[in-house]
């Protein structure tokens, strides 16, 4: 079942078409990535899901309701907007308690919920700090905290790690992973493709307002039908050696073997083989031929896929 549904959605700002006839569904309980370069329509799509803006044509639904139907969605939808500044004069704790109140969390639970999420993002000492006095990284965590308030069914996160130092970004990813395990539906819009590849099960790739690919992360990266072996030179030489292409091609289920300089790309039929079987069989053949292996990856990686699909 779909937690979020986009059906032939178009959004125009005056003459400019920001999103054009886009359709996709976010499966319930999944982590879904919105991917694309600047100007692709990610934030516009995200804003339509969050109910910040309305589509010009087509329909967007979240848990079978229009996103602006706050009364119906209640506390089931929560949002981390990328570029929304926290009210500068509000103290962090007071703001979180107030937002919890608006979400309908009872007075006996409000403060505890607020303190719990603040602790979860590593900010338990910021309770009395005014939002305007927070550093960028601290503010980002408080923004994340407000999105985690209560027990939302759908959490929308726009660039959750943008502008954070590597440690803080890692910690935020850990928090998101925990929520993913808690079976919330997550939608993450990000430029960080490695992050999305790690966190997400499904994704939609947008470019210039158009949907250019959608599906499971495995389908998008080719992880379920392609394995790439990084070939290393023999000790003391620059020579890789001879790849036994005929032997590899003869493995049952292997469809194609391609050697591209120091990379060996093996495509296979996913209905006949799993990637792990291919890795084992190919490695055996390569070792038997005296070749050295520098690394193995399933699929091309999201970055390569996005580069192929989107214009520079």
């Amino acid at each position: 079942m779909a937690a979020i549904s986009f059906r032939n959605v178009t959004k125009r700002f005056g003459a400019k078409v920001a999103v054009s006839n886009v359709s996709f569904e976010v499966p319930e309980g999944s982590a879904f990535g919105l991917i694309g370069p600047n100007g692709a329509g990610k934030t516009t799509s995200f804003s339509m899901m969050a109910g910040f803006i309305r589509s010009t044509d087509g329909s967007v639904t979240v848990l079978d309701h229009v996103p602006t139907d706050v009364a119906a969605l209640g506390s089931r939808l929560s949002v981390l907007p990328q570029d929304a500044i926290l009210p500068p004069r509000d103290q962090v704790g007071e703001l979180l308690v107030f937002l919890a109140n608006l979400q309908g969390i009872g007075p006996e639970r409000r403060e505890k919920c607020a303190r719990d999420v603040l602790e979860e993002v590593g900010g338990k000492d910021w309770w009395k700090t005014r939002c305007g006095e927070l550093s960028h990284g601290m503010a980002k965590r408080v923004q994340l905290a407000q999105a985690l308030l209560g027990e939302p069914t759908v959490i929308l996160l726009d660039e959750p790690t943008a502008g954070l130092d590597p440690r803080a970004a890692h910690e935020v990813r850990e928090i998101i992973s925990r929520r993913k395990r808690a079976e919330s539906t997550l939608v993450i819009s990000s430029h960080n493709l490695q992050e999305l590849e790690t966190l997400c099960d499904f994704a939609a790739i947008l470019d210039r307002g158009q949907l250019v690919a959608k599906g499971s992360m495995s389908e998008l990266t080719g992880a379920g039908r392609e394995v790439i072996f990084q070939l290393a030179p023999k000790k003391g030489t620059r020579e890789i050696g001879v790849v036994p292409e005929a032997v590899l091609a003869a493995i049952s289920g292997v469809k194609r073997v391609l050697v591209d300089r120091d990379r060996l790309i093996v495509s296979f039929d996913p209905t006949a083989l799993e990637a792990e079987d291919v890795i084992q069989s190919v490695l055996e053949a390569l070792f038997a031929s005296g070749l050295r292996i520098g690394g193995v990856t399933k699929g091309q990686g999201l970055e390569k896929r996005v580069m192929d699909l989107t214009d520079a």
Binding site: A50, V70, S75, P87
Partner: peptide, 17 residues
């Protein structure tokens, strides 16, 4: 002021406009 810095977004997702 809330529209300019989009702070209103923290409220529109929780309360009726």
């Amino acid at each position: 002021s809330d529209l300019q810095f989009r702070s209103v977004r923290y409220f529109t997702s929780r309360a009726r406009r």
